[in-house]
Nucleic acid binder design. Structure first.
Length: 860
RNA sequence: GCGAAAGUGGCGGAACUGGCAGACGCGCCGGACUUAGGAUCCGGUAGCCGAAAGGCUGUUGGGGGUUCGACUCCCCCCUUUCGCACCA
């Protein structure tokens, strides 16, 4: 047999990666004459080694970036490192490696891994968030937010391990205990920094209208996260209130005699038979003091508050509470109702107090049943007759009002409007909107993060670090014991400073920022990564922004993506960008499983891309990962699947390599210039149809798997075609047969097909296609060749097969010209011998003709 | 409990706006070439009949419905996955 050319990817891949690097092939600058495309994958946490699960996302983005380049866009495709964070500090505690050393070494290793994957990144724009020239701008933004009252300080609780004497992050709390020593975690109140994201709550909701190219799932999650609900705040007054004290504002003031309750169903207020306060409600302390047994009162409240915190993590908690013995006046019925304290009311939501309407709220119903509180029906559903005696659950829905005084008979929605208005008129409440979204706590009592640029002066209080003094550099010499508070607090040279206002001795803030701050704006920095005057040049972001295609895991559906939307608006309001939304299109990629489980080091089921590259080459790895399922779906790793992709590339290799002398030379006619045989026309049709399919599969949809399968079909067709022509010999037999007596038509259509194939395949398998493109005699790279065009008319079949159904069953197939009209199709179907045997002697009741698709005949 | 998405051969998955279900790949079976084949090429792969062309029957988690026609639309149920879990 002949010499079968063997596909050996390793040398080819090395060669092209070096060429790309030497040519700075993926570096870009702004070019107003060209349309830009910003393609971004979520940057990486440098954990040490990238496994196949991590790199799938980069492969998806790389196909999009390479495709867009071929289609003539000026493509920005950068990469960087989310380099601050707890694991680096944990590594320091464990083996004494400095977090910076650990991080930078990991980055170096992972960068090498990614480079071997042939990802077309503009590496000159690489960012690492742990470097001062990046985190300086975190500090700059922090100061800007401070100026605009978007950053502020308040007391908030943190997890605290009393044994290690340290603050714990949520993920360091395992089953309510410290992850290191197992001591039960307690909560502790600390002064902490917050970003006022709630300022943009409404905008974060309304802005979603611009996010038509985001998955609905993510939008829904964000919607729930912001959790807007419209309702009213209604004022209940303590029964013993004096006129004067009841006029003070309710809420934070414990001396007020008013209890504000938030409700979305003010229409049920005539059924509000009790008031429930959260254990943390400010009034609770006062009621305790005024009670007969203050100590016992406080103990009960304390118990509810504590139980609340731990139990809520695990699920269902039994409703529990106690009567304060005091009463408040229902402002609509003017009747006194008891005031309770209970665990099911959240202190941090709304006003921390609710009106208990057991007839129409399931939680209140359960509570009322347990403590034998009265239940009243005030909304009767249409066509039902609710009675308190027979009710087994609350009736929260629609209906007309009863037992509600002047509002009786109104439909509930109308009642809701009228009663809200009435409350406002009478000065006992007002329309209001509540959000579940809370302000973003950014303080971390940790070392490996951005120092918060603030100084505490005994004389001047909290003083921002002047802009000129930025960055506040993270000191290198810290001790990592895992005990005590932030390591920064123990570095005298860092902590002790002078006040920028008075020049006197002062202390630096020792908290660092949440790493989500870093990732909330890095996509802007990529547009201008070296800028040392501003976070970025507005003009550059004006050109590149927004990110046109952003891909990453769903686990970032809420936090990262909502914080980024928040930051984008902050930058907009600072005048640095005109954008409100940073990401035009979002793709959430599925995870890679092995043995049915997510790949992870701890499970010991990771697949190292380098191992696969050594065996099959990068191109086969990329192709496999992209072929096995759509990008959004999770995939199950199989070695045999990867072998299949390698086999496919080998087939392409043999095909092209053995044909390249025949079709690679000069002076080969275009298929338009020569007369084609039926077989040649048919191959040409397949070529154009494949280009059409792959083109629409890739853009705007990102159906990478079906695009690949279309190319596989073309390759199968090419093999079949070659086996029927002289060219065939070259594919499977000795080279001396190459081009023996092939007619010009054959060579022309083969050239067209092969070149289209190599070009279409190049975003997926960039190395092997570059090599083949070169062997086909092209000087410029395959990217420069551009995306192949197709001719709709050529792609269309000349003849089509139209199925004929009789009473819904397939009975015949008609082979007709593609442009056969409906009447003709009907006639052909009804006269077809096969069909006639089914309709003979029966009445034809109906004939439906779907042109080009099918004929359906109904007989009686 | 609430909400969303999904359920298709032995497996991963195709099927555009309702129009030949199972493209493509894996696996498996057979043939060719071979000293050999775990390489490569060709063919087969829901069941039954047929040497073949082709034919018959069944079929997209289960049950109903709309339609000439349903993987696709509607209703009920089952299962899985993912979000939210007292948000008043």
């Amino acid at each position: 047999m002949g010499i079968v050319p063997e596909y050996k990817p390793q040398a080819i891949e090395k060669k092209w990666q070096e060429r790309w690097r030497a040519a700075r092939a993926f570096e870009v600058t702004e070019d107003p004459a060209r349309q830009k495309f910003y393609c971004l994958e979520m940057f990486a946490y440098p954990s040490g080694h990238a496994h196949v699960g991590h790199v799938r996302n980069y492969m998806i983005g790389d196909v999009v970036a390479r495709l867009k380049r071929m289609r003539g866009f000026n493509v920005l495709h950068p990469f960087g490192w989310d380099a601050f964070g707890l694991p680096a500090e944990n590594a320091a505690i464990k083996n004494g490696t400095h977090p910076e050393t650990w991080t930078l070494e990991n980055i170096a290793h992972m960068k090498g891994q990614l480079q071997r994957l042939g990802l077309s990144y503009a590496w000159e724009r690489e960012i690492a968030t742990c470097l001062p020239d990046y985190y300086k701008w975190n500090q700059w933004i922090f100061l800007k937010m401070l100026e605009r009252d978007l950053a502020y300080r308040k007391r908030a609780s943190v997890n605290w391990c009393p044994s290690c004497n340290t603050v714990l992050a949520n993920e360091q709390v395992v089953d309510g205990a410290c992850w290191r020593c197992g001591t039960p975690v307690v909560t502790r109140e600390l002064e902490q920094w917050f970003f006022r994201i709630t300022y943009y709550a409404d905008e974060l909701l309304s802005g979603m209208e611009q996010l038509g190219e985001w998955p609905d799932k993510v939008l829904t999650m964000q919607q729930n996260w912001v959790g807007r609900s419209e309702g009213a705040r209604v004022r209940f007054t303590l029964e013993t209130a004096t006129t004067e004290s009841s006029q003070r504002n309710a809420g934070a003031d414990p001396d007020s005699d008013a209890i504000d309750a938030f409700t979305t169903r003010i229409d049920t207020i005539y059924g509000a038979n009790f008031i429930v306060l959260a254990p943390e409600h400010p009034l609770v302390q006062r009621l305790a003091a005024e009670s007969a047994d203050p100590a016992g009162f406080r103990a009960k409240a304390q118990k509810l508050a504590a139980q609340d915190r731990t139990a809520r993590m695990s699920g269902e908690v039994e409703k529990e509470g106690f009567d304060t013995g005091r009463r408040a006046i229902n402002p609509f019925t003017k009747q006194p109702v008891p005031i309770w304290v209970a665990n099911f009311v959240l202190g941090e939501y709304g006003t921390g107090a609710v009106m208990g309407v057991p007839g129409h709220d399931q939680r209140d119903f359960e509570f009322a049943k347990k403590y034998a509180l009265p239940i009243t029906v005030v909304v009767q559903p249409e066509g039902e007759k609710l009675s308190v005696e027979t009710m087994t659950e609350a009736k929260p829905g629609a209906g007309r009002l009863v037992a509600s005084g002047e509002f009786n008979g109104l439909a509930w929605e109308e009642a809701n409007r009228k009663m809200t208005a009435a409350a406002e008129e009478r000065g006992i409440g007002e329309r209001t909107v509540q959000y579940r979204l809370k302000d973003w706590g950014v303080s971390r009592q940790r070392y490996w993060g951005t120092p918060i640029p603030v100084i505490h002066c005994p004389k001047d209080g909290m003083v921002p670090v002047p802009y000129d003094d930025l960055p506040v550099v993270l000191p290198k010499t810290a001790e990592f014991t895992g005990r005590g508070d932030s390591p920064l607090a123990h570095i005298a040279e860092f902590v002790n400073t002078t006040c920028p206002e008075c020049g006197g001795p002062a202390r630096r803030e020792t908290d660092t920022m949440d790493t989500f701050v870093d990732s909330s704006w890095y996509f802007f920095r990529f547009c201008d990564p070296q800028n040392d005057a501003l976070p970025f040049d507005p003009e550059k972001v004006g050109y590149w922004g927004p990110v046109d295609f952003y891909s990453g895991g769903v686990e970032h559906a809420i936090l990262h993506l909502i914080y980024s939307r928040f930051f984008c608006r902050v930058f907009r309001d600072l005048g640095l960008t005109t954008l409100s939304e940073p990401f035009a299109r979002l793709l959430t990629q599925g995870m890679v499983l092995k043995n049915g489980q997510v790949m992870s080091k701890s499970k010991g089921n990771v697949v190292d891309p380098d191992d696969m590259i050594r065996k099959y080459g990068v191109d086969a790895l990329r192709l496999y990962v992209l072929f096995v399922a759509p990008p959004e779906k999770e995939i199950e790793w199989t070695d045999t699947g990867l072998e299949g992709s390698f086999r496919f590339l080998s087939r392409v290799w043999r095909l092209v390599d053995s044909l390249c002398e025949t079709i690679g030379g000069e002076g080969i006619p275009s298929p338009d210039e020569v007369k084609l045989s039926d077989a040649e026309r048919s191959l040409r049709r397949k070529t154009h149809d494949t280009i059409r399919r792959v083109t629409v599969d890739l853009d705007p949809r990102v159906h990478l798997n079906t695009a690949i399968s279309a190319m596989m079909e073309l390759v199968n067709e090419l093999y079949a075609f070659c086996s029927r022509t002289e060219c065939a010999r070259s594919v499977t037999e000795a080279p001396e047969h190459i081009g023996a007596v092939d007619p010009p038509g054959t060579i022309a259509v083969l050239k067209e097909a092969v070149e289209a194939l190599v070009r279409m395949l190049s975003p997926f398998a960039p190395h092997v296609t570059e090599e083949l493109w070169e062997r086909l005699g092209h000087k410029d790279g395959v990217t420069a060749a551009g995306w192949p065009a197709y001719d709709e008319r050529v792609a269309k079949a000349e003849e089509i097969v139209v199925p004929v159904q009789v009473n819904g069953k397939l009975r015949a197939r008609l082979t007709v010209a593609a442009d056969t009209d409906e009447d003709r199709l009907r006639e052909l179907a009804l006269t077809d011998a096969q069909v006639r045997s089914y309709i003979e002697g029966r009445e034809v009741k109906k004939v439906v003709v779907a042109r080009g698709r099918l004929v359906s005949i109904v007989v009686g």
